[in-house]
Design a protein around this nucleic acid. Structure first.
Lengths: 211, 211
DNA sequence: GGTGTCAAGTGGTCAGGCCAATTCAGTGCG
DNA sequence: CGCACTGAATTGGCCTGACCACTTGACACC
């Protein structure tokens, strides 16, 4: 005789679920701005703090993006969960792991890639070079790596690269980025990326792995 | 890309980060109760709503558990999710992905492994050879791969191998296993595994990768 | 036409309050 | 003595109302 599943769910969860349903149903599309916190609170008959809590929950789940002074927007869906692996003893192990996987990925890509896929890589590099804000360059960088992974024609492998890419991004990582983001290093990074793409285009697997 | 001087991080993120750091540092152990919302707000010099938002963020990340009327408690860390990657076009892509990652893993293990870790691998192989039921051999096989990954001294890489190992296991996979599990093939598999371990023990990275 | 300015709108944060659930010490009963 | 009950203290859940900082876009100005 199970006690009636009372309404023990907290309010913010209900609101969050309703909003995710609305998004999933296409009521709000990615990139669209949804009603303001005050308006949502009014429509749902709840207080603004509750709406805020729901939005924060959705933000943590990367389902929406909150821009101060502007509004909250539906994020563009990202296939994989943001955080899965533990952080180990700092970001270095993660970097090493990425190095291993992406080296091999580049080698396979060199053998499998088509012209269209190489064009995607080139586009990403162009965007990377043109990027002005950290957000832009990060996005372009990610696109490059995903493009390379896509060229392997191996779904799981591509997702793996995305997964590793989206890991870190923690406090230590940000801090490191601060220290290491000098113009010279950035230029070098872009050079390296270009070398990889060039090797892939040439079909030189060994070279691609090394780069 | 210089400009991020300003401190645009929202308050709840700072609080959440501080709490996760405290938990990671062992200041709070799993199962332990944290100070109440009011107390936290007082100690941190912020308002209670901000603390609440931080706690909700942590709750969504499953780092803490909130029990009404009782308090908020540090969660017991959860295992890796069982299923993350999509299956692609059948198990073959997955196998290829594993092949890539584990080859490189074995190579690193060859350079890094200690005697104790080699002993773990040997034990796993022994169990594998002695195993009678499919369940036993699967378990031993998994232990072998995890032991190899552990020898890389790279936390994320080890978790990656486990993640890939625990993927498939779907209907197609089982069916394949049926077709391919002849005594001869099994013996060959064990031989291969032994060759890998032997190469790792010998510190021969190239040989380990190939095997 | 380009540019600086300002007001409206939006999220961020705070203070203080009341309610409901939980806990536990204290009490009364068997 | 042991057990169930009770009620106050504590804790999280939710609300109201307010003020601040930022973004944006219209509008006057050069």
């Amino acid at each position: 005789m199970p006690i009636h599943a009372v309404d023990s769910d907290r309010l913010y969860r209900k609101i969050a679920r309703m909003l995710t349903d609305l998004i999933a149903a296409g009521e709000f599309v990615p990139g669209q701005r949804l009603p303001g916190e005050r308006e949502l609170a009014r429509q749902l008959g709840v207080s603004r703090p509750s709406v805020r809590e729901a939005l924060i929950a959705l933000e943590v789940e990367e389902k929406v993006e909150v821009r101060v002074g502007s509004g909250v927007f539906v994020s563009h869906p990202r296939a994989l969960p943001a955080t899965v692996l533990h952080q180990g003893e700092g970001p270095f192990e993660l970097i090493r792991a990425r190095w291993v996987v992406e080296g091999e990925t580049a080698a396979i890509a060199a053998e499998e890639s088509s012209a269209a896929e190489c064009r995607d890589m080139r586009d990403a590099i162009e965007d990377l070079r043109r990027s002005q804000t950290p957000k832009e360059s990060e996005e372009a960088d990610r696109r490059l790596h995903v493009a390379i992974a896509a060229a392997t024609r191996n779904g799981p492998l591509g997702e793996l690269v995305q997964l590793l890419w989206d890991q870190g991004r923690g406090a230590l990582w940000r801090q490191m980025e601060h220290h290491f983001s000098t113009p010279a290093l950035w230029a070098e990074t872009i050079e390296d990326h270009e070398a990889v793409v060039a090797a892939i285009e040439a079909g030189n697997a060994a070279q691609a792995r090394k780069a």
